[in-house]
Amino acid sequence: MVSDKVYPSSKAAIADIPDGATILLGGFGGAGIPENLLVAMADHPARDLTVVTNHAGFGERGLAVLLRQGKVKKIICSYAFHRSAFVFRELFLEGKIELEQLPQGTMAERIRAAGAGISAFYTPTGVGTQAAEGKETRTINGRDALLEHPLPGDVAIIKAHRADTTGNLTYRGTAANFNPVMATAAPLTIVEVEEIVAPGVIAPESVHTPSIYVQRVVRGEDLDLRSET
């Protein structure tokens, strides 16, 4: 069965991402990165991108290629200056890229809020720190908390292990990370997978991300790509 969600190539799946798009990019610690979609993005002309992702690139490949190409105007992440994020660091110190750094759980929850229609929320995380700067603080049940707003994307570019042709997804091990929550928080979610199966092969109770969150699925061309090793 052919589905209009299944795309023939990574290049085709990302071909209409426009200039200025905010991209939610999955992955953590080298696992669950949409490697082939990132390679396609390096050949795609879109620029002035805002990228929301756990850390500001690693080494010279993957996201770091887009940074080096000058296509990213702003990074929103939880860990900016890992020693391996030297491409980002150099651009940042030269004033060529903006940074918003936020606690990892606040980032995940802001993305979740965007997907779940939550207008804003309060959290004790970050009270009394640089992460509180410019944010409303309120005492709730005797504890100070910061007001945080949703963090939606225009596009989510994520990695799952398996998809069926309707767009139901499963993840494997600790490679889920930000991918499932990001799938919910953009009107266009593009998923790289290792295997595409027919509807019904993934049992309903085993689906991790239901199909309605997914618009495009592509099988990664090179499943051995590892940008962060």
Partner: peptide
Amino acid sequence: TVPGLGKGGIGGAMDLAAG
């Protein structure tokens, strides 16, 4: 992080410490 530009990262530290 330590004082100065371009150093360190928050990661999950603030969430873990507060939560």
